[in-house]
């Protein structure tokens, strides 16, 4: 595999060709915040928190590092006033949905996001898709999926599959940044297979 050099935050880093910017940064121990990324899963690009600035010949370009491939001699900045502002707004919007999420609060502290900036709209799910993708890509069980769209989009278990598979797995539970997944599971269980 070809090794390429790129510059992240002023440090010259070696990365394998084909890696994403996020993977390259992680391999060099550079922290980029993220919610929807998981090493076992296909990059999703859903939360946009891992946004970084890259130098594109005299001007900077904002890219989502978890889905952007690292290129040779690329110059990347993982923190800047602009990036921090974008991350702060993303966090504030997510916090309007899940104000008590620990994962979000930690990041909010770092970026100075105010959880009361936007009116609360407690849907709890932040649509990171971790549970849905983990269940389908890693476990190949497809017990949980998205339904509906736009502001009504939510996660939903297929009761028949959940009744058979979930109690012995529950590997998606710790992935959820808001605990909403657990709530949906308990509700599904209560409604569809209480005897188990």
């Amino acid at each position: 595999m070809k090794i390429i050099n790129l510059n992240i935050d002023g440090k010259i880093i070696k990365a394998n060709e084909g890696m994403t910017v996020l993977e390259a940064a992680q391999s060099a121990g550079i922290f980029i915040p993220k919610l929807c990324h998981h090493e076992k899963l296909i990059p999703f690009g859903g939360c946009r928190l891992c946004i970084v600035e890259i130098d594109a010949g005299g001007w900077t370009k904002l890219v989502v590092s978890c889905v952007y491939q690292a290129e040779a001699n690329m110059v990347v900045k993982t923190r800047s006033e602009k990036i921090d502002r974008i991350r702060k707004t993303i966090l504030e919007l997510l916090l309007a949905h899940a104000p008590n999420s620990l994962a979000l609060q930690e990041l909010a502290h770092e970026y100075g996001a105010d959880k009361n900036r936007f009116e609360k709209e407690a849907s709890f799910c932040v649509h990171c898709g971790l549970c849905v993708r983990y269940c389908s890509e890693v476990k190949k069980l497809n017990a949980v999926g998205f339904i509906d769209r736009g502001i009504n989009k939510e996660i939903s278990f297929i009761p028949e599959i959940a009744a058979k598979e979930c109690n012995s797995c529950k590997e998606c539970f710790p992935l959820c940044p808001t605990s909403y997944l657990q709530a949906v599971f308990v509700l599904t269980e209560a409604l569809s297979f209480p005897e188990h």
Partner: peptide, 12 residues
């Protein structure tokens, strides 16, 4: 096709 996917599309 997983039922979750069919449901996603049918509800979309």
């Amino acid at each position: 096709i997983p039922l979750t996917r069919t449901m996603h599309i049918a509800s979309f």
